[in-house]
Computed example of a mutant assay.
Amino acid sequence: MHKTVTKLADGRELIYYDAGPTPRDAADRRPLEPAASASEIRTDPFTGDAVTIAAHRQSRTYHPPADQCPLCPSTGDRLSEIPDADYQVAVFENRFPSLADSSAAHVTALADGPYALTPGTGRCEVVCFTSDHRASFADLDEARARLVLDAWTDRTGELHADPAVRQVYCFENRGADIGVTLGHPHGQIYAFPFTTPRTALALDRAAAHLAATGRNLYDDVLAAERATAGRPDSRVVTAAEHWTAFVPFAARWPYEVHLYPNRRTADLTTLDDDARAEFPRVYLDLLRRFDRLFPAPAPYIAAWHQTPRPARTELALHLELFTLRRTADKLKYLAGTESGVGAFMNDIRPETAARTLREL
């Protein structure tokens, strides 16, 4: 992997990742003002959850025409976030970030009531998987998928090196039904200054399991799922030498798959070489199965769960892939029970979903 770091016209960082040395000297010719954000993090007094308020994002780019896509390479007078005429993988600071260090200068503390408020510091990055606007991650070859994995890993290491960052979250939203506002194949990386609510809850559950059994919860879950591989009621979708993909026992989404490395590790930076080499084949296979679920490719979220800082041994790196679509023409909406009290209701048995995905 070859990495080139440069700056956009407003001072934001842009990083090119190439399979080998590639000249990257095109300058951003846009007349942009210096980037600044004004986010704040408010703590819910009843749950302790951190909620980010980022009102400046209301003006962000929303479903532009394909010929005005800000993630396509720059060509002629059509200038985008990528100054070069082509690229392999590119990562840059979001122009409309939910979290940014510049937020520290814009927050005024609210002292009334039992409330806590802090600046919305952190970092939000955009990861462009390919310069091809019409492609998707599933269309990539294994070499390009590996380059994306290397970019995720590099960014995780650099962002975790910042003592103000507690959790690095790499993810992809695909499809208008998910809420994607740019059609170009891309993902995002958030560097949070706090441990996210679901991760904090998972930490508590894993710590309780360790105290009660002396064993790691993620090891026990993976062993239980792998033990059923080959049975008709198995939730395993695919079991490779270094990775296992399975539908979780208490799946919340119609089609939801968790992908675990068979050797537990904390985050992408500590993933071993064998698992890195095998990941592209296994992950592309899963994405292509999701594309075959319905007549049109399924909208999905793909989310890397990594151990937050300070380091804890209870959690394990894994990827969560799920779609909101439950049939070809029906979505799984977060309605009264899910949105109101966080109680998920799933219309498809996890064992049925796993069998469907295995058979595709």
Rank of each mutant, 00 (worst) to 15 (best):
N346H: 15
R57E: 05
A353Y: 14
R60V: 04
Y218H: 11
L284Q: 09
A240W: 01
D112M: 01
F290I: 04
H63C: 11
R252T: 05
L117V: 15
I178P: 14
E256Q: 15
R358I: 10
A151V: 11
D141V: 00
A19P: 05
P114I: 02
A9T: 01
D141P: 05
H133G: 12
P70M: 01
L8A: 11
D112S: 14
S39E: 08
T43W: 06
A335L: 00
Y255H: 11
V89C: 08
P97L: 03
R146G: 12
E81R: 00
F246R: 05
L317K: 02
D219C: 04
G336R: 01
H133A: 08
A275D: 08
L360N: 06
A250K: 08
F322E: 10
E93I: 02
D67V: 03
R155V: 00
P34F: 07
D219V: 00
A239V: 00
A111Y: 10
L268N: 04
P119D: 13
N216A: 05
D347V: 08
A38K: 07
L71C: 03
T75F: 07
I53Y: 11
T199S: 13
N346C: 13
D162E: 09
T228N: 06
L79M: 08
G187M: 09
K330M: 04
T265P: 10
L315R: 04
E142L: 02
R146P: 13
L286S: 15
Y218R: 01
M1T: 08
R95L: 12
T6I: 01
A85V: 01
E314Y: 00
D84G: 12
P261F: 07
D132A: 05
D25N: 00
A227G: 15
R95F: 12
A135E: 15
R231K: 12
A151F: 10
T244C: 10
R198C: 02
R263S: 14
E142C: 02
Q188W: 15
D18I: 00
P254C: 08
S339W: 10
A135T: 11
P261A: 03
T195M: 06
A176E: 15
P64C: 03
A353W: 14
L317N: 09
P31K: 00
T156I: 00
A104Y: 01
V148P: 06
V148C: 06
L259V: 10
N94P: 09
R78M: 09
A224W: 07
R78Y: 09
E40S: 13
Y300L: 11
Q88A: 03
D347H: 08
E125C: 07
D285T: 06
R226A: 14
N262H: 01
T75E: 06
R146Y: 08
D274Y: 09
Y16L: 01
R30P: 09
A211S: 09
Y62V: 03
A9G: 07
Q58V: 08
G342H: 03
D150W: 04
S131R: 05
A105Y: 13
P193D: 03
D150H: 12
D132L: 01
H160L: 00
W243V: 10
T121K: 04
N262K: 02
A38P: 14
S39D: 10
P73W: 00
C69Y: 10
D233S: 15
G340H: 13
